[in-house]
């Protein structure tokens, strides 16, 4: 087979993607944007009983510049929203967002003047985890599902290119 034959090129690209996918899958560095009750459940996820390090995602970094997985755990208010947007923008690509709990997903039962009705009004979200708060198993499930998608290269890097949040015009 010649080196420049099209079939070989394809084979090499696939392998490289797979290698990258495998590396990404097992080295997710989460940044916890924990604001409320869900953050306490995240503490359980990190503690020894549930132990997120079993899945290679225990390097919890509170600096967005070192992280590639943003876990928004808790209620986001209108006052907090610009900060969440800033943190998201400070993370370098590629990056993923898990919205943990009813409040982050939709405002939850706080349908009132102060609570943002879902963080996807501000930043794009890849995975939603329901529950108030979700059990640790639910968050681990979300993590595994993200890892599965990373391994199989399901994520299109341009998936959020057209996203426009409510704070984006300023």
């Amino acid at each position: 087979m010649e080196l420049n034959s099209p079939s070989l090129e394809v084979a090499i690209t696939t392998t490289l993607d797979e290698a990258i996918g495998w590396a990404r899958e097992s080295s997710l560095w989460p940044m916890i944007f924990g604001t409320a009750c869900c953050a306490i459940e995240f503490m359980s996820v990190a503690a020894s009983k549930y132990d997120i390090s079993r899945f290679g995602a225990e390097v919890v970094r509170f600096s967005p510049r070192q992280a590639d997985l943003l876990i928004v755990a808790g209620t986001i208010t209108y006052k907090q929203a610009p900060i969440l947007k800033q943190i998201y923008e400070q993370m370098s690509e590629p990056k993923w967002v898990i919205s943990m709990g009813a409040c982050a997903c939709s405002g939850g039962f706080y349908d009132n003047y102060t609570t943002l009705q879902g963080i996807d009004e501000i930043i794009p979200v890849d995975l939603y985890v329901g529950g108030c708060p979700p059990r640790p198993e639910a968050l681990i499930d979300a993590l595994l599902s993200l890892q599965n998608d990373l391994r199989t290269n399901k994520y299109n890097p341009n998936r959020h290119k057209d996203f426009k949040g409510r704070l984006d015009h300023v």
Partner: peptide, 9 residues
């Protein structure tokens, strides 16, 4: 930053 309007709700 976590004022979720408990009293109004």
């Amino acid at each position: 930053y976590l004022h979720r309007g408990f009293e109004k709700s």
